[in-house]
Amino acid sequence: MIKVREISKSFGNIKALKPVSFKINRGEIFGLLGPNGAGKSTTINILNTLLEPDNGEVIIDGINLKDYKSDCKLIIGVVPQEIALYEDLSAYDNLMFWGSLYHIPKAILKSKANNVLEMLGLSDRKNDSIKSYSGGMKRRINLASSILHNPKILLMDEPTVGVDPQSRNHIFEVIEKLNKEGMTIIYTTHYMEEAERLCNTIAIIDTGNIVAQGTLKELRETSGAKDLLTIKLADLNTTTISNIKSSLPSFTLDSNFNTLKVECANISNEILIVINHIQNAGGVIESIDTQIANLESIFLKLTGKQLRD
């Protein structure tokens, strides 16, 4: 549905986006994961027509975005990173205003606004001014304002920044519902849990480059990130270590804490084997901690830095 071909963007001497390409299928939730300043918002701003790329092109449903901006705008919804609402207006008035920009007939718009408010759990507060809302409630209206015109594509730029768990769940549920109804969603975040929960496909972006993209499984394979088993032993002497080494060739040892760290391709398949090896080598296990390879570890493997750096 969306083809991004070799787009780049510079601001003065700063190369915000080096040539970047990716493809998003219809009905997909596509995650753009990267730290602050990685180029996520620049990509979103090119997709929402606010910025023009220096090079490259964006094709939506076979149409070049650059040539048909107005047509494309009608099928795109944008949830901006900031809470872009009129604070002195009520939630309902905000929705009516933002919806009216898409030429939706008033009667339909009214019904849409009420439905969206219901879906986001804010019907009872619809006539209160936005300034009286909590940060999470504002975020929900920020989302609601972007979906009134039933966009085919929804661009969400870090929509959960500073949101309480209740609002976050509401937002996730709405995203999943919209996606089930067929909406294609592009979701930028630096929260890996969000990308893991929501996205079918993820592109990891860093310093203006897409360093990897694919499903979570594909990313794990590409990056070589593995699950981690952390085992604390009761007593660790040199004989035991030597015995474990002979049967478990790959592990790291923190002798200060009597701890072994073992990387596994699939922790659920390998955990019993590892435990048996240690016990057979004379080791007494005090505790076991498992850590599944996640986006954090994948990002670390791919870029050599923490996601929140």
Binding site: N48, T49, L50, S70, K73, L74, I76, V78, P80, Q81, E82, I83, A84, L85, Y86, E87, W98, L101, Y102, H103, S145
Partner: peptide, 14 residues
């Protein structure tokens, strides 16, 4: 400053 102008620009308005 509060981002509403960008939101206006996302819409079909020029």
């Amino acid at each position: 400053e509060n981002g509403t102008i960008n939101r206006l620009l996302y819409s079909p308005l020029n």
